[in-house]
Design a protein around this nucleic acid. Structure first.
Lengths: 317, 317
DNA sequence: TTCAAGACTGCAAACAGTTGCACTAAACCT
DNA sequence: AGGTTTAGTGCAACTGTTTGCAGTCTTGAA
């Protein structure tokens, strides 16, 4: 018993097309008629059916957002910002989780395709070829992955990594470990190249590691054995795990070794010692991605990162 | 130039209705025809248009999920589980954030109404009256709010609170503070009544407080002044803030005072000391809520909570 | 007064599917 | 052999909205 445009038309004595226009092109209808239609619609509780509208216009006013893991603290701020940006322009947001399964990306985009005007893909792991196939089905923008031809939002983690290593160097740490992420990660590679370019620092790579607390914990022994006094970790979770692991080996942070993370997730602010970290502009990225999508502009943007100095780094004794 | 059911029909020499049926009622079409249609559809890259389908069937195969704050660590596990459950039954999930604005709840449900088969509302703050209005527009299930007539998923936080206070009592803490949440919160009231029922414990209520780290930090002085040795906090964020605040006042946890939180969010596991807390079954709640929604059953469920003992509680000296 | 230009509004055909009904042909029963 | 069921398919109407086109009525200008 849902009330349609026809009910409103009948009740206000005009043709359906007039009702339609009072909602989608108000300037085309006489002010008096318009207000009459509007009040009748209000009384009847009419709400335009977006699905039906999409059928003729081809625009759904829906967007899709695909992330690897909703519960990973890195993503929620991004999702929230994307949602806010979408909402502001009267778009709705589908959110999906691939559960770290690259194959799910393609499947989800396919499934979304007819129901959204575009999708934002966060750090996609599908092959370039697969992504190109998808591009034919639906417009999308990727976050944290370089992909020619597609709209792209990058966070300049390379710059952040360099700042982090320079910060360590400035504190006197000349032997620094890079506790890297998973093999084949774009971000991990980016971090490494940037870190290697800092002069006067011996960089030793420890990894690859799982991008989790556990991964960091497991790397502790190798970090100790490498004899470094400073560490840049692939992300905050790894950093937190590493600090725990070092503690269990009798090394204290920052007294014995300084650790800096990457991401600036909430738990990093809450754990002790408070984590020095490279803040990733996840909210800005989410917001920007949906803006690009809605405005259909194909651009590649690089967002700045910055170093947040807290308590997990200190001068070399 | 999207490929429709008509293109498939033409290319495989059958009527559109047959194509339609091979997708929505396969058993009604001859095996040979079906496989021919299927291969043709595959070749052409046909995918059913869910929006169009929704127009006639009235079922969109979409669900909405509304939470107060996506970035609050309490929600992501719930969202993830809800998504997984939806996905499993081939539903898509709209996710929305009210930004703690009760008015946004109603608006979002309205906006979703034609586009979803139902919505799950987490800890809604709208009035009963408003919710009843909404119930006429779209089926929904509420999480963590008692509402007669609507499908409901409750987490038995009362039981958890009682376990927590009993745990403190068992450690010798007979004077216990309840650092409460915001005024008017259903959960906060629930916690209080349960906590008050534990025998042989003097309960002093400190609050109301903002449900955040900052709220907990601010409550530290009053907790100290109340002379208690054990604390049950409204949630983990409050507990973490409180521990920080007590530390700044020269009181150490758990040596001087034992603190237990509620929720079991990730940062509680990662902060030091590791937080003893009442684990809320958020994932189970998310999963169950979408199952109830899809199966259209109106039931009231109460999910068990349990106490997770970690390092922020210890025996009274 | 006449005509052209607007401003509104109605008509009807899309959009991409679903579904009740009618029809055909084959299979099944006596 | 004749009648009845059944499986498979086609027909056409319907879902709620948009939109190009055409018609009506004012209004302004010549």
């Amino acid at each position: 018993m849902t009330v349609t445009i026809r009910d409103v038309a009948r009740a206000s004595g005009v043709h359906v097309s007039t009702v339609s226009r009072t909602f989608s092109a108000p300037h085309m209808v006489n002010a008096a008629t318009r207000s009459r239609v509007l009040t009748v619609a209000e009384e009847l509780g009419y709400r335009p059916n977006r699905a039906a509208r999409a059928l003729t216009t081809g625009r759904t006013h829906n967007l899709g957002l695909i992330v690897a893991d909703i519960a990973n603290p890195f993503f929620p701020p991004l999702i929230k910002a994307a949602h806010a940006a979408a909402r502001q322009r009267d778009y709705h947001l589908f959110v999906a989780d691939t559960d770290e399964e690259p194959a799910a990306e393609e499947e989800l985009v396919q499934a979304f395709s007819k129901q959204v005007d575009g999708v934002v893909l966060c750090s996609p792991r599908s092959s370039n070829k697969a992504l190109e196939r998808l591009a034919e089905r639906v417009p999308f923008v990727v976050i944290n992955r370089r992909l020619r031809g597609a709209a792209t939002v990058l966070m300049d983690v390379g710059h952040g990594a360099r700042l982090a290593v320079e910060h360590l160097a400035g504190l006197g740490h000349t032997r620094v470990a890079l506790v890297s992420g998973p093999a084949g990660s774009w971000t991990s590679a980016e971090i490494r190249t940037a870190a290697e370019q800092v002069p006067d620092v011996d960089l030793v790579v420890v990894g690859p590691n799982a991008p989790t607390e556990r991964g960091g914990y497991a790397a502790a022994a190798r970090v100790r054995d490498s004899g470094v006094t400073g560490v840049l970790a692939y992300n905050d979770l790894v950093a937190i795990g590493l600090i725990e692991g070092l503690g269990d080996l009798g090394l204290s942070v920052p007294a014995d070794v300084s650790v800096v993370g990457i991401d600036d997730i909430v738990p990093g602010r809450l754990s002790r010692p408070k984590l020095t970290t490279v803040a990733m502009p996840t909210a800005a990225a989410g917001r920007l991605a949906v803006d690009l999508l809605i405005q259909e502009v194909t651009a590649t943007t690089s967002l700045e990162t910055r170093l947040v100095i807290r308590d997990s780094t200190a001068a070399l004794r």
